[in-house]
Design a protein around this nucleic acid. Structure first.
Length: 146
DNA sequence: GCCAACGTTGGC
DNA sequence: GCCAACGTTGGC
C-alpha cells in the first residue's frame, strides 16, 4: 500500500492511537476491489512511501479490519466527498491497517535491481495503483532484504 | 516542474 | 460504444 509520507508516514502511523488507520480516500476501482474483495484480517502489507525524495518500502503493517464503506465519501467537507455515492449504495470502501514494524527504507531503485522482482506489479511500467497484490514469492524475497 | 501512463467523463 | 479531453499519479 502506497502512502505519501507527507500525508501518512510509517512513523506517523506508529504514533497514532492504537497505531491504526482507516485507509480511506481511495478513489480507484481496482484498488477498492483489492481492499473489498481480497484483503483479510491478519494480511501483511508492505507500507510504501511514494511521491517523496526516497520512494520505497518503509515498513510492514497488518490488515486489522475488513473493508467497510469509506465515511469520507459522505462528508461534503471532505476532499474525498463523492456526491454520486449514497448511504444505500456506497461506492468506496476501506480497510483498516495496524502498524507492525518499521523496516529499513528499501528504495524503489534497489527493488528494480533484483531479477526476482521484475514481474512485480509495482515495478511495472505505468503502474499507478496505490494498492497492489504482492506475490508470496515476492513477499518472501523482499522480507529477507529488509 | 515535467511528462508518461492511465482512469474517468461526457458528448455524440 | 467510441473516443477526445481532461485529471491524477508518481518517478525523475
Amino acid at each position: 500500500m502506497k502512502s505519501e509520507p507527507s500525508e501518512m508516514s510509517i512513523d506517523s502511523l506508529a504514533t497514532l492511537p492504537g497505531q491504526t488507520v482507516a485507509w480511506d480516500g481511495v478513489r480507484n476501482y481496482q484498488a477498492r476491489n483489492f481492499m473489498r474483495n481480497q484483503m483479510q484480517i491478519g494480511d501483511l502489507v508492505f507500507f510504501y512511501h511514494s511521491s517523496c525524495p526516497q520512494p520505497g518500502i518503509a515498513g510492514i503493517v497488518q490488515v486489522s479490519r475488513l473493508a467497510y464503506p469509506d465515511a469520507t465519501q459522505f462528508d461534503p467537507n471532505s476532499k474525498y466527498f463523492d456526491p454520486r455515492s449514497s448511504l444505500e449504495n456506497p461506492r468506496w470502501f476501506n480497510v483498516e491497517v495496524t502498524f507492525l514494524k518499521k523496516t529499513r527504507l528499501l528504495p524503489l531503485q534497489e527493488l528494480r535491481t533484483y531479477p526476482e522482482l521484475t514481474s512485480m506489479r509495482i515495478l511495472q511500467k505505468g503502474n499507478r495503483l496505490s494498492i497492489t497484490p504482492v506475490d508470496p514469492n515476492e513477499w518472501e524475497f523482499i522480507s529477507k532484504k529488509l
